[in-house]
């Protein structure tokens, strides 16, 4: 196995770490922010399920990213991932909830521009449209859940102490589901550009089989988990309580809404069922968990009259959304130039 592959892969692992620090906080940030689940518990559950999601459900979204731009040289893939990671790291450091998807899409477009390749606009439009659909869908789901749960609680008359216990269990389950969906949906951002050059071979232990890509995704999953444990606490402070003060039940609604959205855009099985039923399927696109969370929070905030929503933070978030792809595309473009002309590495063919 070529050692240089692992050197180039390091940027993907760095991006995975950034994704763990940033996006995983979206999955359980509200649960930890409302003090319903301890950080360590949430981080452990998230790590395990992110890896499971990445390994067993990550194939669909990788395909879409490859269609946007087939990064065909390892050095190019290295720089695409590194510039996305740097953009995310920069945003994370300034406590801005950032989208890893937008960073990687920005980088791939940057690579396309540098190499003079035409960006597949159909795919780009498909991806960008999900950036709009994703928060809206998440907001709609959260509003429906909000009214449904409110009506149920009024009818069920559960004791406050029991309600607290059920909410905790619900948050832990939502955290597991959300982490699975995040792993499945977002592993493409981290490892998608390295799939073509993957040196890993399929392994089988008894009835258990893992393809080469799944092994690559497993390594990416571990990088994400490392990000979860080492850096996501800071982002939780932003997501957990700054956008809107929320009760634990609202926190659960937010987590489950964004998990459903991430799952809808990642599940090949669900896509097949929709096709069988004659329903237009949702594209398998890596979507932003940050956007999904913000969509869910705003949905509930507006339902409650909009007074509780901290609109200024949302402005900062929106600015991050616009800046992220531009920053990562610019970093990618400039760094590819250096990589090719200073280090004499081929970044495309």
């Amino acid at each position: 196995m070529d050692i240089s592959y692992f050197i180039f892969l390091s940027s993907g692992l760095f991006l995975g770490w950034s994704l763990g620090a940033n996006d995983a906080a979206n999955v359980f940030g509200t649960a930890v922010g409302t003090k319903m689940v301890r950080f360590r518990t949430a981080a452990t559950i998230a790590s395990v399920f992110i890896i499971i999601g990445a390994v067993f459900g990550g194939a669909g979204t990788s395909k879409t990213l490859t269609e946007l731009g087939t990064v065909n040289e390892l050095a190019g893939a290295f720089m695409v991932a590194l510039s996305a990671a740097l953009a995310v790291y920069w945003m994370v450091n300034s406590s801005t909830p950032v989208s890893t998807t937008q960073a990687i899409v920005g980088s791939i477009v940057g690579w396309n521009i540098y190499c003079g390749f035409e960006t597949n606009t159909t795919i780009l439009i498909k991806i960008v449209s999900t950036w709009i659909i994703c928060p809206i869908l998440s907001g709609l789901i959260s509003v429906l859940l909000y009214f449904g749960i409110k009506a149920y609680l009024k009818h069920a008359k559960i004791h406050l102490i029991h309600q607290d216990l059920y909410t905790r269990i619900g948050l832990i389950l939502a955290c597991a589901f959300g982490s699975y969906a995040l792993g499945a949906n977002n592993i493409a951002n981290v490892m998608g550009v390295f799939v073509d050059a993957s040196p890993f071979h399929a392994v089988s232990i008894g009835n258990f089989h893992l393809s080469g890509t799944q092994i690559l995704f497993f390594i990416g999953g571990i990088a994400i988990s490392t990000g979860v444990f080492t850096y996501s606490k800071k982002i939780i402070k932003t997501i957990g309580s700054s956008v809107m003060s929320m009760s634990p039940i609202i926190a659960w609604i937010v987590v489950i809404s964004q998990s459903i959205v991430l799952f809808l855009f990642a599940s090949q099985g669900l896509k097949n069922i929709m096709i069988e039923l004659g329903i237009p399927p949702l594209p398998l696109v890596p979507v932003s968990s940050s956007q999904a969370v913000i969509g869910a929070v705003i949905g509930i905030g507006i339902t409650k009259g909009g007074r509780e929503v901290n609109w200024s933070i949302l402005g900062k978030v929106a600015l991050g959304w616009i800046c992220t792809p531009i920053i990562s595309a610019s970093i990618c473009f400039i760094c590819l130039f250096f990589l090719e002309n200073v280090f004499n590495l081929s970044v495309y063919h």
Binding site: T34, K35, L160, I161, S247, P248
Partner: peptide
């Protein structure tokens, strides 16, 4: 037991 963190002070 860190119960009802949001309403504990009220209770």
């Amino acid at each position: 037991h860190n119960l009802i963190p949001d309403l504990r002070a009220d209770v």
